[in-house]
Design a protein around this nucleic acid. Sequence first.
DNA 1: ATGCCAGGCACAGCCTGA
Length: 264
Amino acid sequence: MDSLKIATFNINGIRSRLAALLEWLKREAPDIVCLQELKAPDAAFPIREIQAAGYGAIWHGQVSWNGVAILAQGIEPQETRRGLPGGHGDTHSRYLEAVAHGVIVGCLYLPNGNPQPGPKFDYKLAWFERLIQYAAAHCDSGHPVVLAGDYNVVPTDEDIYNPRSWLKDALLQPESRDCYRRLLAQGWTDSIRARYPNDRIYTFWDYFRQHWQKNSGLRIDHLLLNAQLAPRLCGAGVDRWVRDQVHASDHAPTWIQLETRDKR
DNA sequence: ATGCCAGGCACAGCCTGA
């Protein structure tokens, strides 16, 4: 291969969306996939079907909510972490990390945080602080690292169709955006924004009010690259056709391509 | 200010999502 394609996809229920996942894998053939919102316990993860599609996988499920997985084409991802450090008593399955195809891949599902203010928003910010602290070491490690997932943050007003009706939402709060900025300031590259500095790019369209049909979207799924990987970024996109299918997830797969050999 | 759709589970209305 001359490039490495890494995707993140909030699948919103892997059991309800398995056929869509398999069709997408077949058509787009990503090398690495980060999945969020499995909404299934570990025993219900469809590993057989995913292996039949040519992917190895690791997963961290949970009954009803959350759940993350990492898929790798043709190989078994080598798990390096399950859950962020700290967060005593945090039972949510929201972080999984592996080495695959020569890169360290962190797959994350950041808490939504609504309603705010309130305990759920406090949990979101506390989780974000744990991520920021953990990511600092990764950023400067000298290893190639990508942190991909559903960050549940709209970074700026350029990342939403119209902020007016979302001003009180946890995804747009100054505290949430400040956490995201501080994470980037460690030295991470927001690869979609780097690749499309002036375009409206959305990765999520809620099921209400015909938002998909009107392209009233939000950009909340992000792939962050550290300094070892950023120079290799050579492509990015959103597989909008997946969102257009009947019975689709409210997110679309979001992906980047990395040159296999470093350009520097 | 709330509901709007949608998935999952106590399979009947909730809870959660974003």
